[in-house]
Design a protein around this nucleic acid. Structure first.
Lengths: 191, 191
DNA sequence: ATAACTTCTTAATCTAGGTTAAGTGTTTCC
DNA sequence: GGAAACACTTAACCTAGATTAAGAAGTTAT
């Protein structure tokens, strides 16, 4: 069965016709590991729903340092929200971490969908509310906790993901250098 | 004219009846400076739209340190989104910074409003999208920039607010101690 | 298989920002 | 209007995490 429709059903209930309508607005694609779906300076024309594999988004700062903004595994959406919503050049990269199958929804189609199937506007409203909450929590965590506590939270929240990710990406997500992350991990093992 | 309706009109256009409907769901209140509208552990039953004065939300970490999550001046909404959406106890405090006039919208009324006036669901969807983008940007800034650069961004983004806020709150928002903030400011003056 | 690249580790050294503490304004409010 | 409470400053010292560098271990592609 379709993972996207399953996920939508968790928040709103669509009729069979509405479900079909949703699918006509989307497109499925396969990507190999390391494919770049979006680069800094480009306009994010699509929102990506992952059905297989892993994607990640990140930015690169003035010193050339990468900062992971989010990971997306099956059942998750990913996009450069600023660029997607404004249709202006963004600052994020979106890259395939592990060979992936992805459902694409373009900005235009999303907007049409919202008026044709108002339940989908509700669905995305709820999804974005949840992202906002998660994002605010991450901000608070970054301000309140040490790197060690953040790593601990990360391993609990993304328990399955942790084993599929290179350490440097986890380090980047929690906001430390790979070198410090390595030192910290060694320290934790001694306990 | 009503600041709330003005703000709604920037994103969706309501009929006069719809406008009246919106207002029947809200309630206006006045608060003195230092009033606590919400404490950690309480359920955030209302979302607050500021028409006069300034509010702020913050959490207090395990070491008793305060972290400002957001400021709200006229035209802005404020709430503990996690608690408001889930109707579970939250971790945020919401406090009146400067004597304020506030429009309250309860969680129940918001949900009824969404089905009665679908344009209002669109309005909030757009608002939350914008919060998410701003929040993600703040996260990236915290990971990419020094305290000095973050302060610089803050003064540009909240130019009018800066002069009304105690330094310790600005320090907290950008993620440094008041002592370091004071030192940094002195350093900036020398340039 | 092996050269080339990337990831991870370890260790020495450095620094942005934290902590502690003490002193000087400013509000606030009986 | 004066004492308490709070906001800001300065300075000495401290530390979590950064930087640099160099080697070891995995991956990738030919």
């Amino acid at each position: 069965m379709n993972l996207l429709l399953e996920n939508i059903a968790k928040h709103v209930s669509l009729t069979t016709e509405e479900q079909e309508r949703v699918l006509t607005f989307t497109e499925t694609r396969h990507y190999k590991a390391k494919t770049l779906l979006l680069k800094e300076g480009e306009i994010c024309t699509h929102s990506y729903f992952v059905t297989k594999g892993i994607l990640r988004s990140y930015n690169i700062d003035e010193n050339g340092v990468e900062h992971v903004v989010s990971f997306a595994c099956p059942g998750w959406w990913i996009a450069d929200m600023y660029s997607f919503l404004s249709q202006r050049p963004g600052q994020l990269y979106i890259e395939v971490n592990e060979e992936a199958e992805v459902i694409l929804l373009s900005k235009e189609n999303r907007d049409i969908l919202f008026t044709e199937v108002p339940k989908m506007e509700r669905f995305f409203r709820i999804l974005i509310e949840n992202s906002l909450v998660a994002n605010q929590q991450r901000l608070i965590d970054n301000l309140s906790f040490t790197a060690e506590a953040r790593y601990d939270k990360f391993t609990k929240k993304y328990a399955e993901l942790v084993h599929c990710l290179p350490q440097k990406q986890i380090a980047s997500y929690i906001g430390v250098t790979p070198e410090f992350f390595s030192k910290m991990k060694a320290r934790l093992l001694k306990k």
